[in-house]
Amino acid sequence: MPMNASTGGDPAIELVPTTVELADQIERFLEVIEENERFLVVSHTSPDGDAIGSTLSMGLLLEALGKEVVFYNRDAVPYNFGFLEGADAMVTEVPADADIDVTVVLDCAEPERIGEEFPEQGWGDTIVVVDHHKTWDAEFADIYVRDVGAAATGELVYRLVVAAGVKLDKPIAEALYCCVMTDTGSFRYSNTSRTTFRIAGELIDAGVEPWRMTSHIYESNPKERLELLALVLNTLEFSHCGRLAFLRIEDEMFESTGTGPELTDGFINYARSIRGVEVATQLREDDEDLWRVSFRSRGKVDVSELAAKFGGGGHHNAAGCRIEGTSDEIVEKLSQALVELLDE
Rank of each mutant, 00 (worst) to 15 (best):
F71L: 08
V180Y: 02
V94W: 11
S186K: 14
G86Y: 05
I172G: 07
M90C: 13
T182H: 01
E117R: 13
M58D: 00
S190F: 07
L60M: 15
V145M: 11
Y158V: 01
D125Q: 14
K67W: 10
D99Q: 14
V166E: 06
Y189W: 14
I143T: 12
M181G: 02
Q121A: 13
M181I: 15
T92V: 02
K170F: 08
V105K: 06
K67E: 10
V157D: 05
Y144M: 10
E68Y: 12
T135C: 04
A96N: 06
E63I: 14
K167F: 11
E85P: 08
H132K: 05
D137K: 06
A138V: 15
M58L: 14
P78I: 13
N191W: 12
Q121W: 05
I172Q: 03
A173P: 08
P95E: 12
M90Q: 08
G149L: 09
E139Q: 12
V91K: 13
E63S: 11
T153Q: 09
Y72K: 04
A98I: 07
R146Y: 00
K170R: 15
V69L: 13
S193W: 06
F140C: 05
C179A: 13
E112A: 01
A76Y: 08
F118I: 07
A141P: 09
W136P: 09
L106C: 04
L65F: 03
V70K: 06
L62A: 07
A109H: 05
A76C: 07
A151R: 03
A76N: 04
Y79P: 04
G165E: 09
R159L: 03
T153G: 01
V77R: 01
D137G: 00
G124I: 05
T192Q: 02
T192C: 05
D101M: 14
